[in-house]
Structure formats: structure tokens, C-alpha cells
Design a protein around this nucleic acid. Structure first.
Lengths: 323, 323
DNA sequence: ATGAAAGCGCTAACAC
DNA sequence: GTGTTAGCGCTTTCAT
């Protein structure tokens, strides 16, 4: 249970802790003999340097905080998977926080991560309280969300996505195309862009938009009831563009239940949905690419390269249908 | 960017760092006046104590390492979600590692987590190399997997699950019930129990078992081809008990493709599958309960209460069908 | 009620 | 090529 220290290794190897440190970090000149002795000692004690003590010396912690609503979601789960994977390739460890879009929890998490000396943050939540991020004074990258002027954002091309989705439904013959999303005022410009793509396409066909806001965080059952209400009150609806795949699947269930023939397209295109719901049309975000862009931006910031300040990366989307 | 220290706060408050420490930790006697001054100073510097420095003093790090194949999976994503949630309620932070069942990666992760002074580990991977865990000399809890004699395990009642699943298919009228799982010799006793439940039920009906091993880690497409092969070569199959829901869904796709009328039941019963695939029969593991048990066991171990050594918690499962 | 000093495990600066 | 020393941010004796 006791964890060995440099000192222990040094004693066993008959040298001083500085020498051991030098061996570990490959710094300075060390004779082959001592190097071997040290390695042997480390081996026999099963020694691991204390990463935390290193950090105390003013070095990087190589810890990155990930704040997302939940890992239990096809889109977030996949993006977290890629973020962890890519970060670990760069030597970074990951602390995960599931905020469940609870603003209070999120603030506590940020404080906790700060206390743990994280080198940076990647944030994919959708809260209103973003003051903490402005104050944090720390490398941050946001996914799909503007936190403040100079925090870089990685998102997919939401406008294009909205446009393509609507076009798809139109091409399927639909003329009463409804859009369901979870707009949160000025806080969600991306959701707004998606919506704008929808509106603009309809405009080219001289059709008028019809948008319903269904808060993303609502429970399954509440959402379901709202969707039932929408469909019951609007018998003309023949197609729906839903802002995320899960809600799209739910809508499909509802339509089936109500015996309504409605064309549906979702948004996200996570691997899970694509493989296990191949018949759901969707707009695919390039999740791996987005993750990789986010990591790149973050590491640049961590390395004091501030050219990424205010950068907005927009990754291309793809229509996936009739699979 | 500079992070303030106790010293900074002390200076600003006109006291010594010891006093500030006392205020923060609520230890000893402090006059109301100084307490207020200190709080004010902390506030104005936006000060956060360095959690890592504390750990250096031989205290707990309050970091727990989670090693799972991936967050990008309905079952693992959900269990990770609950683990993080429950652990954070106890003041623990979580470092996540996606091993993808890569044994080398897993070993590196364990070393990394050790170096970061984690207080304990919760492991949900299925590798063969478990020596590291035996050597780690650290509080560990395993999910659904025996790592060594005294490492506690939390699992669902796999025998019961196998039995119920088979019974369900039998009651549906099936008489040629095949079981697909991913048995890895002696490494996976739980998979074995599930299989035993299947065999035992069939025995009560004087039916003979027929088991195919499809490695869990195979890619979607390879699995698909194997399943096609199995179905093509065994025209009598009228029901399949599949060891996990995702493979069950894939099997359903394959059956549909081959125009085969086969009753299917999966295993896991994650929230995602239940909600968005309500027509898939499955055996539901109580994921929240399992997570909570795992955390309880781990914290007990961390607190030097070794009564949990060798404990095997078996949570009840439930048949979910005809929803 | 507060301070001074030592030390946690490690690395960097400066000897020798 | 190796050792000595100081110090990272914090807590914990032990004084006062």
C-alpha cells in the first residue's frame, strides 16, 4: 500500500535522489552502471514517479477536464471517446464531469478541475451560466457553443446541415415540413444556424417554416407528450426535421403510435445510430474530426500559442439517408 | 494565468499562510475578524486551494480511475455515467480511460493512474492480462469480471439472466434456441454462468443447447458476416439468445435481411436500448444499482475496511419483453 | 488566536 | 558523473 518514493529507490540503488530523477528524465550525464542500478531498483520496488509532485514544481499536470452533459448518449459518448483517445495519444489524461446540464453542478466541476490544476478544458454543455469560463483564465475549447468572444469553438456546419435536411425531406415529396429544436435564445447560435438553414431552404421553395421548440433536456415522457400534442394539432405535417437523432427516434415511435405517415430526419449521425438504426435519415457530424480539431486547438492554447483565440472551426456535414 | 497560492492570500489578508490554511480547513481557533479578512482576500483573488499539493501531504487524492472499453456504448456509457455521478456525490473525481480492450493500453493506463495517485480503480474491461491489477496493491472493484481472489466483483445474476432469456424464447414457441456469446475460457466466469443458465433451462425441456462463440470485440461487419454464416448453415434456428443488446440488434438486421423469422432476445437492458428499441426483448441489468454497489465497495476499501475483500455482489436481473 | 518551521515527492541550479 | 540545496503549495507540529 505504501508508495515508494525517489528516496527509496535512491537508497536501494546506493545513489542520491537527484541521480534517480536524472535517470528517469534522461537528463544530464549518467554512467551506464548507475543507470542500470537505478533501473533495477525501480523495477524491484515497482516504482512509479508521483505525477502530482511533478505538477507542484510548476509543470503541466497533463490533465484535461471534459465537461459534458453525460457519457450516456450516442453523440456525447462518441465524442468523449474520441477526445480521450486523441488526448491520451498526446500524453494527456482526462477528468470527466457529467454536468447533466445542471448549471450549479457545472460550476462546481469547473472549480474542482481548477483545483486539480488541469491544463485545459473541453466543454460540450449547454448552460446559460458561462461567467465561470470567462473567469477561469485557462485554455478552453468549446464544442458547438459560444462561451465568450475568444474561446475557440468547434462545431459542424449547422447551416448546411439544416439546409440539407430540409432539402432531403422536400425531395421525398414533403411540403409541410416542421422543424423541432431546442433553441435557447442567444445562447445557442448554432442551433440558430441550423434553423436558419431550414428556413432558407423552405424560402427557396416558397414554403413557410413551422418551428416548435422542445427543450432538449426534457424527460423522455414529457417530450413524447409534447410531440404527440404537436402531431395531433397539426394534421398537415408530412415531414419533420428533428434537431437530434434520439428525439428523431422518439418522434418516429410517436408517429407509428398515432398511425401518421411522416418523413423524419434527425441530426448527429453518431456511429451507434448509423449502425443500429440504419433506416433513420440523419445529418452526420464528423465526430472524430471535430474531436481532433478540438484537441489541436486546446493543445495550441496550452502551449501559449494564442493564434487560436476566437477561432471558429466549422466541420462539414453529410446527409445520410436510404441506407 | 498565474494561479494564486496560500501565500498570496495570506499576504493580502495580512496574516500567515498557516492561518489561511486553518480558515480553509476549519481547524483550530480563528477570530471572526481574521476569518472575514481571509475570506475577502480569497474572494478577491478568486483563490482555489491546489488539490494536488494537498495530496502530496500524504492525503487522499480523491481521484478514482475508471477503466472501461469505451464510453461509446449504451451499457458502458450508462454505467460510467452513474459511476461518475455517485462518486462525485462522495467527493471523488474520476479519470476515465477507454482501453478498447487493448491489453497494452490498459496496462499503460493503470501505470498512469497509479502515477496520478488515484485512491482506487473501478474496472470494467475484459482482458486476459490481469497481473497488473494483482500487483497494483490498490483498492479495486471489478464489474462483471474476476480479476483475482480478493478483488470484489459486482455483476448481475448471469445464471438467472441466461435462464430467463431462454425460458422467454421457449414460451414464445421456439424449440431451436441458439446462444451467441463471447466466451473467453476461464477468464469470464460470468459469461459462463449466463451460458449455464441457458443450458440448464434447455435441459429441463430436454432440448439440447447450441452455442456459437462470436468474439465481442470483432468489428460490426465481421460479426455480421459470422452471423450470416451461422444462420445460413442452420436453417432450423427459430430463436436466438444473444449475449448483448447491440449484437442482438445486429442479429435482427441480419435476420431481416435473410428473411428469417427468428425470435431474438438480448442482454444488458441499457436505458438507451429500452427507450429507443422498445420492441427488443432483453434481460435488464440494474445498472444504477450495480454502479452504486461498486462505489460502496470501493470506498469501503479506500477507508481500509477490508470486509469487502473477495465479496461478490450479484444484482438481480429482469426480463423485459413485449413492451 | 496566530506564527515559525519542517516536510510531503519531486526537479533545477549550482557545486565539486 | 554525482551530490547538495532550495523550493513548488500545502498542512502539521510545536511555540508563543
Amino acid at each position: 500500500m505504501k508508495r515508494y518514493t525517489l528516496e527509496d529507490v535512491a537508497k536501494l540503488a546506493g545513489v542520491t535522489s537527484t541521480t534517480v530523477s536524472r535517470v528517469i528524465n534522461n537528463r544530464g550525464n549518467i554512467s551506464d552502471k548507475t543507470r542500470k542500478k537505478v533501473y533495477a531498483a525501480m523495477e524491484s520496488l515497482n516504482y512509479r514517479p508521483n505525477a502530482l509532485a511533478r505538477t507542484l514544481l510548476g509543470k503541466q499536470s497533463f490533465i484535461v477536464g471534459l465537461i459534458f452533459p453525460t457519457t450516456n448518449h450516442p453523440f456525447y459518448g462518441e465524442i468523449i471517446y474520441y477526445l480521450e483517445k486523441i488526448l491520451s495519444e498526446f500524453g494527456y489524461k482526462v477528468m470527466i464531469c457529467n454536468s447533466m446540464n445542471d448549471s450549479k453542478k457545472e460550476q462546481d466541476f469547473v472549480q474542482m478541475l481548477l483545483a486539480n490544476q488541469v491544463d485545459g478544458l473541453i466543454v460540450g454543455t449547454h448552460n446559460t451560466d458561462i461567467e465561470i469560463y470567462k473567469k477561469a483564465n485557462l485554455p478552453i475549447v468549446s464544442i458547438d457553443r459560444i462561451l465568450s468572444e475568444n474561446i475557440p469553438v468547434v462545431s459542424s456546419d449547422n447551416y448546411q446541415g439544416g439546409f440539407l435536411a430540409t432539402e432531403y425531406l422536400y425531395d421525398k415529396g414533403a411540403r409541410h415540413i416542421v422543424h423541432i429544436n431546442s433553441l435557447r435564445a442567444d445562447e445557442a447560435p448554432y442551433s440558430y444556424e441550423r434553423r436558419q438553414g431550414y428556413i432558407d431552404f423552405l424560402t427557396t421553395k416558397a414554403l413557410s417554416p413551422s418551428i416548435f421548440e422542445v427543450d432538449y433536456e426534457l424527460s423522455f415522457d414529457v417530450k413524447k407528450n409534447i410531440l404527440i400534442g404537436i402531431l395531433e394539432l397539426n394534421k398537415a405535417i408530412d415531414a419533420m426535421f428533428i434537431a437530434d437523432d434520439l428525439t428523431a427516434l422518439l418522434t418516429r415511435q410517436v408517429c407509428q403510435m398515432l398511425n401518421r405517415d411522416v418523413n423524419i430526419i434527425g441530426y448527429d449521425g453518431s456511429e451507434l445510430i448509423i449502425k443500429y438504426y440504419p433506416d433513420l435519415a440523419t445529418i452526420q457530424q464528423p465526430i472524430e474530426e471535430m474531436s481532433s480539431e478540438a484537441v489541436k486547438l486546446l493543445i495550441r492554447e496550452i502551449n501559449q500559442d494564442f493564434t487560436s483565440q476566437g477561432v471558429k472551426v466549422k466541420c462539414p456535414v453529410q446527409l445520410l439517408a436510404n441506407r
